[in-house]
Design a protein around this nucleic acid. Structure first.
Lengths: 239, 239
DNA sequence: CACAATTATGGAATGCAGTTCCATATGCGC
DNA sequence: GCGCATATGGAACTGCATTCCATAATTGTG
């Protein structure tokens, strides 16, 4: 109704020479996320980087969740495609390789860990489940157990990713690098009541000195052992 | 909203008869989270429920993250304390029981799953690690492996919690109950390209029919089997 | 070629959230 | 009674996602 004195000319500038595309936007979002962290992705910053307004972005993207999922999906897709699975490797080795690829991706792009958890559609998930699932098949796991076996691996991977993302964010927010952070947590644990938290206190040293990547893999191996023993009756050829 | 005659007197009303306390605030926050979901917790809603202003809350709480962590910690604390561990149960049974208790808590309070991942301090984590760790000790796992063993279990539990929380939120946002949601995802998976996603498509049925709680436990068991076989040389008494 | 209709664009406006500010109250030690 | 630390609560500030809208380019149609 009342058009009160809003500027007469809203769009005075020339139009961009090359049009926006969903892909461009997602690429810019990934760059922003990588350089400025999860909180760095705002429609304002994104607008500026693409020299446009927020409105234009919404023509290609439904909303921020969509954008985040798409960015996450992009990383996961290129990660899984790039994973160099060798045809003659054991299924176990392949699963380790796939899992490590995801770990490294989430380590390099810390926001992926949390984006994955909240991903809207399911395409990122599906991209992970498929190749791992094939190896589980190759492992000879009976069909009835496919579901829980992939679920377990996936949930573990997502758990690690989420936690690393949270730790990283905490560290960055407080200006601590990884070792400062671990040091701080380790100290905090040592100060717990010895009566109530003897076990946690005993973890103070490993907390300070552990290697995330190695331990992630150790967890995968532990789960793989659990899988292996669960269908011994089927395994005819071991490696 | 209606800004009523913002007079010169900012605080005209009487002071509350009983003072606010951190505990009251956290309790109110938990109630809000339970009834209105993760997005229901705002300082405005909280202020109203406590019939005060946002400023008063900030006297007791440093920040929203603090509040969320505290609420989460409250649930975790009561959950772990209430878990009826029997002294003569096997360590495996006790771990299952503890894990299930967490699952049920996260199922009843869906926001806990995501709050746990982003928890600021580490008290909620510590509350889970301690009792599980003791059972791992009781299991005879060598000290060197304590760290990765608890980590694996914890990460798995966090992963499941986070994913359930995300799924629930998605469902609620789209007005789907659990079975509608599973049906939708299952259908989505069936429409994937059979060449590219044969395995995922084969999971379409279990996706539709699975039982979260049962499968969570199956994952725990799978991990427990992996733990068991990793230190056979120590195990003298099995159950 | 004219001329609608559709597709895009981008800047302003909206609304809501976390957080800070500040004018005040209340209790407590002296 | 007086001054100080402890609380309180409402308004104001800031920054965000999202929507609105006046337009510009492009496409289709006679």
């Amino acid at each position: 109704m009342t058009q009160k004195a809003r500027g007469k000319k809203t769009s005075s500038g020339q139009r961009r020479e090359e049009s926006l595309s969903r892909e461009q936007i997602i690429a810019a979002a990934i760059e922003l996320l990588d350089t400025s962290g999860e909180n760095g992705l705002t429609f304002r910053a994104l607008s500026e980087q693409l020299s446009t307004g927020p409105g234009a972005i919404y023509w290609h993207i439904t909303d921020k969740g969509d954008l985040l999922t798409a960015a996450c999906d992009g990383i996961v897709a290129r990660t899984m495609n790039a994973a160099p699975i060798k045809p003659n490797a054991t299924p176990q080795a392949s699963i380790r390789l796939l899992a490590l690829a995801m770990f490294d991706a989430m380590d390099e792009h810390p926001w992926v860990g949390s984006a994955l958890t909240g991903a809207r559609g399911h395409s990122p998930m599906v991209r992970i489940v498929e190749p791992i699932g094939r190896q589980i098949q190759a492992l000879g796991v009976p069909k009835k157990q496919h579901w829980i076996t992939v679920s377990t691996l996936l949930n573990y991977i997502l758990g690690v990713g989420g936690r690393n993302a949270a730790n990283g964010q905490y560290g960055r927010a407080h200006g601590l690098d990884r070792s400062d952070f671990l040091e701080a947590v380790s100290a905090e644990w040592l100060q717990l009541d010895p009566k109530e938290y003897p076990f946690v206190r005993s973890l103070s040293v490993p907390m300070r000195t552990h290697d995330d990547r190695r331990d992630f893999l150790a967890g995968i191996d532990l789960i793989l052992r659990g899988i292996d023993t669960s269908h011994k009756r089927f395994a005819s050829k071991n490696v």
